[in-house]
Write a protein that binds this DNA or RNA. Structure first.
Lengths: 202, 202
DNA sequence: TGTTCGAATGAACACCGTTCAGTAATTTTA
DNA sequence: TAAAATTACTGAACGGTGTTCATTCGAACA
């Protein structure tokens, strides 16, 4: 039965071969400029082959989308050890924002682009829910410690997420240019500080 | 000299003919699904003709982009008469959000899409600056009335804009689905209320 | 050894934005 | 009025896109 095993391995290898090439090109040139033909050429296979492993372009990039969340969680792992929940919340926001800064295209893919979600997000969005639950639990802990009194946790979470996402989205999609004379990175940094100082009064 | 005049009129009419068709199709099917050929077919001219009036697809949609800002300003005009600056700020946020809710595709075009900005936003973004200055002046007034003490107006403006934009962006790009069991419109409404209540403590 | 089977191909399809030589109609000039 | 020049418009063509599918071909099986 080792032939079947090897075939299965080959199939897996081919998938990762495609994904590796796709990831590389995508992070270099962005989603729009990454065509199936380019990926096929990079791995020295014909375009049609890719469709034997991924239903369509969306499904291929959906995989990278999931990878992105995994990488983000990884970066947030160490924060589990921050005992004060409010400090942890602030640190999570920072890491979230750093992630957007360091992985603009990936952040775009995860939270802004419509493309890789056509199939999945129709009714639900598992990775989004997981991320959100993580955020919600921290905020709930904050509330247990007396913060954010009398505020509904769902709406509060939406608001907090929106604050940070809003800054990241304006940054990633180049709308920070509306501020002349201020560097986008400077805006992000100090915008986040304002966010924190505002939260501290609640 | 009336021949030249008429020709000038004809040219203007052709421009608006194209823009009207483009707007209609764009608002019906979104940017991605709106092709030059579709617009050309709608006005019963050949695709090439459109390029006699607009440099490229981006420039065509850039016009709609400007139109969007004009419409938004229109909706904000009545708020000039709200005397209390903080009340005005809250009202502006509401109108901004309502605009995003009622004109998803247009909001997308104005604040999220990269496409129509390729030329313009390279170094600056006039419409964005005008909108922002409007916001900044209201916030400055709030500060003159004792609100937001000790906060830098630039960073504070960025933060406030990000809060509302963040909610709108998550809504327009269907990321509200991360909240199971809560209607997106409900999220927007109550998320904004949280935003206001948080601002009120500053 | 002959047969089956599945992976890979690459031409083909239907689209896209954009360009440009050519046409036809109108205006200007002689 | 006739010829020339200017203008608006066309639509085929270019080089790209995502996707499909009849065909090929080498490896596994009987």
């Amino acid at each position: 039965m080792s032939i079947a095993e090897r075939k299965h391995r080959d199939k897996e290898n081919m998938r990762t071969l495609i994904l590796d090439a796709a990831r590389k090109i995508f992070l270099e040139k962005g989603y729009e400029q990454t065509s199936i033909r380019t990926i096929a050429e990079a791995i020295e296979y014909s375009p049609g082959t890719i469709y034997l492993y991924f239903k369509d372009k969306d499904m291929l990039f959906h995989e990278l989308h999931e990878e992105g969340f995994a990488r983000m969680f990884e970066k947030m792992q160490p924060l589990q050890h921050v005992s004060d929940p409010f400090e942890r919340l602030k640190a999570i926001g920072r890491v979230y924002m750093e992630f957007a800064k360091d992985n603009r295209d990936l952040y775009d893919l995860m939270f802004i682009m419509p493309a890789p979600m056509k199939h999945e997000i129709k009714e639900e969005w598992p990775m989004g829910q997981i991320t959100l639950n993580f955020l919600k639990s921290v905020i709930a802990e904050c509330q247990a410690h007396g913060r954010f009194k009398g505020k509904d946790i769902e709406y509060l979470s939406f608001f907090i997420w929106s604050c940070v996402h809003g800054m990241c989205a304006l940054f990633v999609r180049d709308r920070c240019k509306a501020f002349e004379n201020i560097e986008p990175l400077d805006l992000l940094e100090n915008g986040y500080n304002v966010f924190v100082s505002v939260l501290e009064k609640n």
